[in-house]
């Protein structure tokens, strides 16, 4: 009866597209990762672990961009969460009027194309003429002015800063909903016990917001590991390779026609993310059934 009313072939279209364009390429990746597949020859030869050796043991800088990706991911998780949490508390309990207006403005960066955001920030962060350095000089903080995207030491922090600018409002909106779902009684009870302000935040808001913070962390994590647009446009991995991440290197290898290496990298990322995804789904599923 059930299978007649809800025939499985209804799921066929979605499942078919997903299998053909996402699962199949990922599975094929595990074969091509062990080959010398490239754009210069039509032959594809099995080369064993050569690609993995190149990535992990060649000293050619491949480990650097894995480190960059991790640094970017961890840093943006922290900056976005802290800023978003601060703003969310401010907009839910700090203000009555204009809270909705601020929310709409702060979420705006998240709907703009990353590409466009990066282009604008390329000009804002221009060392000589950019708005940021001009502003710093005019208010007498000229010593803080840096060669943001062109300085090896400042490039990665600048990219992280721009990404935080874009993503904090999005995380904030989710946290606001989480805070609004906390029953008012808890705060009243806390107030009777003499806890207000910081104490109420520490002992009521923060613990009850943990499940939502877990979700936003997962969102930031999945985004961070796959970061591409912002790095590609802001620095294209430079200066040198100071801001190269997994996806920008894959694109670079792809454009050079080194498909085997690019696929090996993709497959490593696949394993990491599927592993993470598995834990996340199990975790959320447990929360749901509890």
């Amino acid at each position: 009866m059930k299978s007649r009313a809800y025939p499985f072939y209804f799921a066929g279209g979605a499942l078919g597209l997903y299998l053909l364009f996402y699962v199949l390429p990922s599975v094929m990746g595990f074969y091509y990762a062990f080959t010398d597949w490239n754009s210069y020859s039509s032959e594809v030869n099995f080369v064993g672990l050569a690609n993995l050796k190149l990535i992990f043991a060649s000293g050619q800088g491949y480990l650097l961009f894995i480190k960059n990706t991790v640094v970017f991911t961890v840093a943006t998780i922290l900056t976005k969460t802290v800023i978003a949490l601060g703003l969310a508390v401010l907009l839910t309990s700090g203000l009555k009027r204009l809270a909705h207006f601020h929310r709409v403005i702060m979420y705006l960066p998240a709907v703009l194309p990353m590409l466009v955001v990066s282009l604008i920030f390329k000009s804002i962060l221009n060392p000589a003429t950019g708005l940021l350095n001009t502003f710093l000089r005019e208010v007498g903080l000229g010593f803080l002015a840096q060669k943001w995207l062109v300085d090896v030491h400042w490039a990665m922090p600048s990219v992280i800063g721009v990404d935080t600018w874009r993503g904090a409002g999005y995380i904030m909106v989710i946290l606001i909903a989480g805070i609004q779902a906390i029953p008012k009684d808890y705060y009243e009870a806390a107030a009777i016990d003499g806890a207000s302000g910081w104490n109420a935040f520490r002992h009521v808001t923060l613990p009850l917001l943990m499940p939502v913070l877990a979700v936003t962390t997962v969102l930031n994590l999945l985004y961070g590991l796959k970061v591409f647009d912002i790095v590609f446009v802001l620095t294209n991995g430079g200066p040198g390779r100071a801001t190269d991440t997994v996806y920008t290197v894959i694109f670079d290898e792809f454009s050079k026609g080194r498909y085997g290496v690019a696929t090996a990298l993709s497959s490593i990322l696949f394993l990491v993310m599927i592993g993470l995804g598995y834990f996340v789904i199990r975790f959320m599923h447990r929360e749901e059934t509890r």
Binding site: F21, V23, P25, M28, Y247, F254, I274, Y278
Partner: peptide, 22 residues
């Protein structure tokens, strides 16, 4: 199982290189 299999795709990165071949 199919449901979880599909939503795993939220985490899954695209393999752009082999996707070219497909």
């Amino acid at each position: 199982f199919i449901y979880f299999f599909i939503i795993m795709g939220i985490a899954m990165p695209t393999n752009f290189v082999t996707l070219t071949r497909v």
